[in-house]
Amino acid sequence: MPDIANKYTEAELVALLKERQQQAFSYLYDNYSGALYSVVLSIMPDREMANDVLQEVFIKIWRQIEMYDATKGRLFTWMMNITRNASIDMVRSKGFNNNQQNRELTEAVYDSVGTVSTNIDKIGLRKLVFKLKEEYRSLVELAYFQGYTQDEISKMLDIPLGTVKTRLRAALIQLREIIKP
């Protein structure tokens, strides 16, 4: 077996995960947990709950690796979407989003009872939202970080669906331009 210190290609890693190899999982965790944790924290700022989400995410990745289709995209993209969905589910199940909807969308959030929480504005994609045009920020917040469908947003903001779609796409193009090296 290859040494754990080896760098796996994505294909090798996926193959070994499908073989249910512990060291492949360990490698996956070591190499991706930081990035995925920041995805969780950009949506669920409570550290303790974020830990639960991250655990759930890695277990999901492990158990659903057979469903990952490399022809459709990168492993990270697949894992990132699992992470985003799991985080949004957690937020919704804990009723977090009601509180969040009432605050300034990109405001720093501190846990009201004073437990360890994260300034989510500095994390992952969220830190980039500041740099977006004003009219795009709330759209990205609602769509990406809170997981509303474009149809829901259209009703929520009373904007035609076509406009929501066009603006969201424009917002994401701007996002791409911001992160382009």
Binding site: Q22, D30, G34, A35, L36, S38
Partner: peptide, 27 residues
Amino acid sequence: ASLIQSNISEDGITPPAELKQQIMDAL
């Protein structure tokens, strides 16, 4: 996808050390 991956990975946040063992134990 690769742009997003490198951007997010750049400032990844290390989870608590005990979390890995917890997940390994669960699996």
